[in-house]
């Protein structure tokens, strides 16, 4: 990790990280997908005529991918952060492909608050900002519902004060 004061993506700002519950939520999803892979590997062992070595290799690959993704989810979620500044909102994320989105409050057209079934069960919510540009990719996943609702209201209020059109 680069020094916080010199790194272009994190410098100078007060970052709010997202809830670690998002890690759990994403790992549960990963585990559900993994169940399918396990079923596939078991089938390889049971089907006659498939060499044992192949089935073993598939099992190893599945395990390695699982561990790697498990670890990656933790890093990815920790890379998310947002910062409310005077005139704009910053959202940063990514490890391999890092990005930082700056959305001036006056350009926000709407703010979405979304949560899937696993997210709702664990109490995490996604806040997404939309501008007139489709390429604005300002998504903050993994917020506690109260925090998300408060953020949405603050953003909507600031947007309303400044919005003047397209």
């Amino acid at each position: 990790m680069a020094d916080r004061t010199t790194d272009a993506f994190t410098s100078d700002d007060v970052w709010t990280p997202v809830s670690p519950r998002l890690i759990t939520a994403r790992r549960i999803t990963l585990a559900l997908v993994m169940l399918l892979a396990v079923a596939g590997v078991v089938a390889l062992f049971l089907i006659p005529g498939v060499p044992r070595a192949w089935a073993l290799a598939a099992a190893v690959v599945a395990l390695v991918v699982f561990v790697w993704l498990w670890w990656l989810i933790g890093r990815r979620v920790r890379s998310f952060g947002y910062s409310e500044r005077g005139d704009d909102l910053l959202v940063t994320s990514g490890i391999m492909f890092r990005r930082l989105v700056i959305v001036p409050y006056g350009r926000m057209q709407l703010v979405d608050v979304k949560a899937g079934p696993i997210d709702r069960w664990l109490g995490v919510t996604t806040v997404q900002l939309h501008t007139a540009a489709a390429t604005t990719d300002a998504k903050i996943p993994g917020l506690v519902p109260d925090v998300a609702a408060a953020l949405r209201d603050r953003l909507a209020q600031r947007g309303e004060q400044r919005s003047t059109g397209l």
């Binding site: 993506f9 492909f97 890092r98 989105v101 700056i102 001036p104 501008t131 540009a133 390429t135 300002a138």
Partner: peptide, 9 residues
């Protein structure tokens, strides 16, 4: 300008 993004691959 709708928003600004900084990216690094």
């Amino acid at each position: 300008t709708q928003s600004v993004r900084l990216t690094q691959g």
